Computed example of a mutant assay.
Amino acid sequence: MKLGYARVSTDDQSKASQVDALIAAGCERIFQECCSGQSKDRPQLSLLLNAARAGDVVIVQRLDRLGRSLKDLMSLLDSFKSAEIQFISLTENIDTTTAIGELAFHMIGSIAQFERKLISERTKIGLEAARARGRKGGRKNKLSKQDVKKARAMLLDARITKTEVAKHFKVSRPTLNKALARSS
């Protein structure tokens, strides 16, 4: 069975051209909705995923109708493949029912994986370079060394609580505790 999916982001947009293309592609059932592609809550997409069975073909007019991020697209396409559901994107000419379409699908997946690894490597190199220059990552301390000395002095008075000291420096008590522990 050929199942179509049409999505627009706002009520001002029309799904008509998508629906026409899906009908022309032979879709027997079309799931339509109006919501952002970034939204995880897409009821019609969930219905489509529940309705699709092994041997079915899911068709979209364009890849961006199925999802905005490459990660989400690849996750959906992987779930289609594992459930033996074929996929066609009309505009991009991706058709996993053919050998070339399957190759295109794998190339997109390989490029996405390559991109993730490049980003990870660049991040690690950048952090190492920053450390070599003496930079330390993470948030800046909310309390300076002087503030910590003052806090210690305040806490020598048995009438003053840690909660009062934390309020004085406009930090939470756990933040004060961490600053005190760091300076020990």
Rank of each mutant, 00 (worst) to 15 (best):
R182C: 00
S120Q: 11
K71H: 12
L22N: 10
L45I: 07
K178P: 01
L47R: 10
P43Y: 00
H168P: 04
G67H: 06
K145A: 11
S39K: 07
H168V: 10
Y5G: 13
I23V: 15
K140Q: 05
G109E: 03
S89Q: 14
A21F: 06
C34F: 01
R182M: 02
G4V: 07
D20E: 15
A104P: 07
R62W: 03
G4N: 11
E28K: 05
Q18S: 04
I100M: 15
S69D: 11
K81H: 15
F105S: 12
S36F: 01
C27W: 08
T96H: 02
S120Y: 03
K167W: 05
A130Y: 01
I23M: 09
T96V: 11
D64T: 10
S89N: 12
A158F: 02
I125A: 15
E92F: 04
A51R: 13
E92N: 07
V165G: 07
K145T: 09
Y5F: 15
R122I: 06
S36R: 04
G134A: 03
T96I: 10
C35H: 12
G26P: 09
I30K: 01
R53G: 06
S183M: 04
R53D: 12
R152W: 08
S82G: 03
D12C: 01
L156V: 07
K149R: 08
Q86A: 13
S9C: 02
Q44D: 10
S79D: 15
R29C: 09
A130W: 00
S75A: 13
M74W: 02
I59H: 10
A153I: 09
L103H: 12
S82W: 03
A25P: 11
R29F: 08
R182Y: 03
A6Y: 06
F169K: 03
K81N: 15
L73A: 10
T97M: 14
V171M: 11
L73S: 10
F169L: 09
L48F: 02
S183W: 07
Q146N: 13
A104M: 13
A6M: 06
R68F: 07
F105Q: 14
K150P: 05
L155T: 08
K136W: 00
P43T: 02
F87H: 08
I111C: 10
K162Q: 15
I85K: 08
K145F: 03
A112R: 00
S9I: 00
G67W: 02
L76F: 13
V58C: 08
E102V: 11
L73G: 09
L176I: 04
A16C: 00
A104F: 13
A153P: 08
R135P: 00
K2C: 05
A24L: 10
I59W: 11
M74I: 15
G109M: 08
D20I: 08
G37E: 14
A16L: 08
A52T: 01
K140H: 01
S69I: 01
E164W: 04
V19P: 00
E84C: 14
R133T: 02
T163C: 03
S17Q: 07
